[in-house]
């Protein structure tokens, strides 16, 4: 699915990722955890192709293609989806219009005809249920005036509509109460399949109670310093990140 080798990336000349390796196979769910400032969100942004982030070294192969060379939109069209930590508001552009444009752009890239409007609407109705999204929100402007929970649910709804092969959830749990968290996680779980993989970036373990990962990685100082089964998340929850930090520092010495 995606293979990341020795990835170095910097923002405004400051190196954030310092040789990161990660291999995700189809159907797998990988959780990336780590203390604040360890580079978790940077990883999500770099994979999605945000311009402010410069890849200085390393390679990323996504479904056999060199991801780094692709534009942000082509990465999306290839099936990479980023659920934003802070979803963007676009005033005046309805959610529906936005999604339809996105779907048709992706279809065009794949050499398909535009989606049939009726089929599209049926799809909207079906997928809304997945995250218990109010039908009215679909007609509102993209994320404008949405509550924090609605924004996150809207991200998962969009993911359901665009059917990516790799979903990257960037701190999707931040700012969610327990009910919203459950809804969002259920939505994601329904989208799990043998062909679809997820990278779940989170600071807290609680999201992983709902979205159970196959692997947990600890990101610290721009590198993955520890990898383990799902139980690692519990251990982190209990002991915090300090022991990881000192281990990593000792290893570096």
């Amino acid at each position: 699915m995606i293979s990341i080798k020795n990835l170095h990336a910097s923002v405004e000349g400051k190196e954030i990722l310092k040789g990161l390796n990660l291999e995700v196979k189809p159907g797998e769910v990988h959780a990336i955890m780590g203390p604040n400032g360890s580079g978790k969100s940077t990883l999500a942004s770099v994979l999605a192709g945000r311009e402010d982030y410069e890849v200085t070294e390393g390679e990323v192969t996504f479904n056999g293609k060199n991801l780094i060379e692709l534009s942000a939109e082509d990465r999306a069209r290839e099936g990479l989806f980023l659920a934003f930590q802070y979803p963007i508001e676009i005033p005046g552009v309805s959610n529906i219009n936005f999604l339809k444009t996105a779907i048709n752009e992706i279809r065009e890239y794949k050499g398909l005809d535009p989606i049939d409007p009726k089929q599209f609407l049926a799809l909207v109705k079906e997928k809304q249920k997945l995250v218990e999204l109010d039908g009215k929100l679909a007609n509102r402007s993209v994320n404008e005036g949405f509550s924090g929970g609605e924004k996150k649910r809207n991200e998962i709804f969009q993911m359901a509509m665009l059917e990516p092969t790799l979903g990257i959830l960037d701190e999707t749990d931040s700012g969610l109460d327990i009910d919203a968290l459950r809804i969002v996680a259920n939505g994601v779980n329904k989208l799990r399949s043998p062909e679809r993989s997820f990278i779940v970036v989170t600071h807290y373990q609680r999201l992983l109670d709902y979205i159970v990962p196959d692997y947990v990685h600890v990101l610290y100082n721009g590198r993955i310093v520890k990898t383990g089964p799902k139980e690692l998340a519990l251990e982190l929850e209990e002991k915090g990140y300090d022991w990881i930090k000192s281990d990593a520092q000792n290893a570096a010495v």
Binding site: A72, A76, P91
Partner: peptide, 25 residues
Amino acid sequence: QIFYCNQRGIDTEKAIGLIVNGYCK
């Protein structure tokens, strides 16, 4: 805003069209 559109598969040209039309709605 443009990056958000890009990430959903919409290229920059189209994204601007969308955003401007939204702005003028």
